Simulated scan of single mutants.
Amino acid sequence: MSSGLNLRTALLLLVPPLLWAGNAVVGRLVNTLVPPITLNFLRWALAFLILLPLAGWVLRRGSPLWPHWKRFLLLGLLGVGAYNALQYLALQTSTPLNVTLVASSTPVFMLGIGWLCFGQRVTGRQIAGAVLSIAGVLIVLSRGQWAMLAQVELVVGDLYVLLATLAWAFYSWLLSQPKEPSEIRQDWAAFLMAQIIFGLGWSGMFAAGEWALKADAQITWGWPLAAALLYVAIGPAILAYRCWGLGVQRAGPAIAGFFANLTPLFAALLSAAFLGELPHVYHGVAFALIVGGIVVSSRR
């Protein structure tokens, strides 16, 4: 059950978009080194090895995981097997501007799925918060020049992002509906491991299909790819999922969804840092709008 938004919960929900922004930057950097769906599989395989000493007990025959395997099979599909694989795949055929623009619909998906599938009442404040938050994202994407948005042309990659956003919204709502044993729910490493176990099966099948369909698929091993895999496994995978799961439990999926809109803002700032460019005024305006959307939507 959610208990609303406070400073500690807000800080928890700030960590995932920051790490996910870095994930997008790294995903673009290794674009030519590894196929996108394979990158997702390798990422979670490494995360599995990292978590094994902490949560290997859930693999045992008498573990409380197995009576609830159907739930974790679904969570593994949505959060591990599909979400990032679709995003990495989208970057192959769509521009970063389009990918981030389509992904900015996360709060709308959160509210819509909560209303349609989980009986969640949508308030006027949440709608107002969604408008403010999306406005902030659009300012970042247009770099303060609205005419740039008119140049956007949707391609197949944008469909992948929509599917990824839909998967993430369902995943987040499922997190807010605890049905697994307390031994797993209260152990963050075990809870994530339980998802990864089944998620590796899904992502492995998807990666196998990628290699079967893509004749020129190859992996360029080296320190750049190794460093990238280490980051995406520890940061966006383990740390971000841990913070997101806690934040969703405490604030609820609808409020948490607004924090996801900070990802493109953080991505813009990280890109500016790597390019040596200073932040612009519109970054501050966008940040104020996104935070304003969070505050408005979370007020009781």
Rank of each mutant, 00 (worst) to 15 (best):
Y171E: 09
A226R: 08
A90G: 14
K179D: 11
M148W: 09
L270V: 08
A217N: 14
L229F: 04
V152D: 00
G56P: 02
W115N: 04
A135H: 10
L14T: 08
G199W: 00
I50A: 11
Y171A: 09
Q120P: 00
F118W: 14
S271L: 12
T9I: 08
V26K: 00
L39N: 04
I197Y: 03
L78A: 14
L149D: 06
A189S: 05
V156L: 14
L213K: 00
Y231C: 05
W66Y: 14
W173Y: 12
K214Y: 05
A47S: 15
P53R: 10
L116F: 13
K214H: 08
L33C: 11
A267S: 15
R299E: 01
L59W: 08
I234F: 08
A212Y: 09
P64V: 08
V80H: 00
P96D: 11
V232Q: 07
F259Y: 10
T123S: 15
L29Y: 01
M148S: 13
L12S: 06
G245D: 11
F170S: 11
S63N: 03
W115G: 02
S133L: 02
L154C: 02
L5V: 12
L101V: 15
A233Y: 02
R250W: 05
W57V: 13
N6E: 04
L111A: 05
E180T: 09
E277Q: 13
